[in-house]
Write a protein that binds this DNA or RNA. Sequence first.
DNA 1: ATACTAGTTGACCGACCGGTCTATTGCAAG
DNA 2: CTTGCAATAGACCGGTCGGTCAACTAGTAT
Lengths: 201, 201
Amino acid sequence: MSNINDTRERIIRVVKTRFHNRSYADVGIKEICDMASIQKGSFYHFFPSKRDLVLAVIDEFALDWANGFVAEAFDPALPPMERIDYVIDAAYFWQKSSKDLNGHIPGCLFGNLALEISTQDDVLRAKLNAVFTSAKDRFRGTLDEAVEQGTIKPLDSETTAEAMLAYLEGMILLAKAENDPEVIYRLGPALKNIRIETNRH
Amino acid sequence: MSNINDTRERIIRVVKTRFHNRSYADVGIKEICDMASIQKGSFYHFFPSKRDLVLAVIDEFALDWANGFVAEAFDPALPPMERIDYVIDAAYFWQKSSKDLNGHIPGCLFGNLALEISTQDDVLRAKLNAVFTSAKDRFRGTLDEAVEQGTIKPLDSETTAEAMLAYLEGMILLAKAENDPEVIYRLGPALKNIRIETNRH
DNA sequence: ATACTAGTTGACCGACCGGTCTATTGCAAG
DNA sequence: CTTGCAATAGACCGGTCGGTCAACTAGTAT
């Protein structure tokens, strides 16, 4: 217990950035072991398979995300609709700083993985979908608050939140294709104007 | 000349659906050859490398797309803003029918490839970006028409077109993660309300 | 001192990867 | 009938893939 055993953490740390900057298929176990300065036996002591690793990475990354810029952006102290602007800023700076570091826009890890493997592994797909759902819930809560405060007129907050998330992911996708973070600033302003009206039957 | 030599076409046809439904990395040369009933020698007679194949596939697919539902959706006979509704319908039915066929939503080939490999191959990235640019131009032309006809108030058609494309790709991404085409119908209505105002200096 | 076990090593596995190469086929032009 | 060449066949290549395994190490509990 008192022993400092950080091997598992080291594996995850090393692989997080690699999955994010490249792709699931492109990062091999051997490379991971080399970068973490371990042998394969150690790797498979902690993870039954590469698939289990990516499952763990999604969890860890979602946690980083929630504790990091998401917690900042969705700061309850900010007026609700300003939080949405903050999300744009956060997305921009993240992609921008990644590009400054290694020349490429990595995009969103969850979006990347979703498009790469969600047709091939349903468990993975469901896990990524859960991450998106919790992101959507953040938006929805913010919209509900804005409606309560009278900042915006009532709307279908659930669906609008989903639409905002879609738009965010789409912006990041185009920014990656263009390899230019400015796309996010260019398209960002439209995010908080997205509205889907309540469907009155 | 009179000889029916459809090997190249057969390779492309076989690989198009596979790249679309799985991923670039997941589809191997051997599999492609088997499915096209040829040997590796034939494959490498037509394509110098797997990378050159995917380059060709992008071209072919963009052509299919342009001649297929894009040509229909952006039918000049339709009122401009109705064309945008048509895009949603087309996206929905395509994803829906794919799911009915094999149980999975394939998403958008270009979006899939962009997120999978655009950090790893700049030529490929640029090619995909060009496809997105021409899609954006379609939207822009439609918006310009709508402005001319007075259907919508003047706006920044270039940036709004890009925003619409982002939203479309984002919807498809979420639909794939959820493996449910209904996402597209749920979020679709917001597409044509996206607006980015002209930036008056 | 002993037994147990989590952690680690690194050789090894079969399968498959993208790609090469030589030999052969078959058609078309001279 | 010969020459030439696009097209095809299929064995072969080194390397890497994800994953296994028996042996060993070191710290802990008894």
